[in-house]
Design a protein around this nucleic acid. Sequence first.
DNA 1: TTTCTATGTCAACAACACTGACATAAAATA
DNA 2: TATTTTATGTCAGTGTTGTTGACATAGAAA
Lengths: 185, 185
Amino acid sequence: MQSPIRTPPTPRPSPHAGSAVGGASTIRADQRLFLTDEQLRTGIELLFFAYRDFTADPDRILVDREYGRAHHRAIHFMRHRPGLTVAALIELLGVTKQSLNRVLRQLIADGLVEQTVGETDRRQRRLHLTAAGRDLELLLSETQRERLRRAYLEAGPEAVAGFREVLHRMMNEGARRLLATTTER
Amino acid sequence: MQSPIRTPPTPRPSPHAGSAVGGASTIRADQRLFLTDEQLRTGIELLFFAYRDFTADPDRILVDREYGRAHHRAIHFMRHRPGLTVAALIELLGVTKQSLNRVLRQLIADGLVEQTVGETDRRQRRLHLTAAGRDLELLLSETQRERLRRAYLEAGPEAVAGFREVLHRMMNEGARRLLATTTER
DNA sequence: TTTCTATGTCAACAACACTGACATAAAATA
DNA sequence: TATTTTATGTCAGTGTTGTTGACATAGAAA
């Protein structure tokens, strides 16, 4: 667990960080400023624009192939959680099995995904990427990693920590749990 | 591609995240750790889950009415940039005029949006929310503001500054320009 | 043996994006 | 003034991705 109150670390050189220098009242004011409706509104818009551009890169690549964003998401999770079950993938993606199935059927038919029967429970189908599947996943995600890498590098480790912190706290409990089970944060 | 190195427990946003205590080599190592492929991957997933939950709140409200996310986006920008032209809204949303038009027609028919003829250029249609339109926008965005407010409050102003910083650097130049013209950051 | 679970599939439908084509009024320009 | 360009609206068709509902099968569990 984490303490809900962050200790203000060294002020990062950021266009948004207000100068915390001044009398006690100034500090008090600064502590509230980041919660104004105006700040929240620009936060909403930052999320909108950043996420849009972030997903646009792989989308462009997928246009040529006959795949879409749903395929990317599916193979993303298969890459990093090899052998996961269909049910687990459905939960991660937050879609119905019918919706996933359409995507999965294509990926299997095209030889990007393989299924193996569960060892203990033979009803389960465990999902794995083939070499071709991994290739495509890498190609797609590299565009996103590159964008993120650049942003991280420019913003610096302090900012990145805050970025992750806020995103983490934005998620629902369910998503946080899902992330925790497959990721050591 | 993927570095086989296991990322040691991520430099978690800890209270001492910024404390530059330690030898020079320690600092050097810390500076790189946040750029590992593993860190980038979890960043991608954080974005996915956070954005999904973030948009789910208004979506739930919209289900009852006969509107969708596209309507929310449109009235969001109309609320904060009253009088903007159709072309400007198209550019902000990044959709075609045909796509926007379908949404806009409904909103106007339902009395949530009004158009006025441009003063200098009478070809333009300037868009405004009616009182009812503002009501709906407030209802929808309040769920998002509330989520963001809580996350901001828990994470603290430093983290929020980093959050905004990284998002800002993730955007394309175009989006950054768009945001700048209508927002004093 | 009966029931539940994990998965797959068909069909229908809705939201939201796209392209392409065409129309109108008003501004801009030759 | 005549012509062209611009801002907007609209029709028609299409694709991706999501939904619900119904039904089937194999295997686990009771």
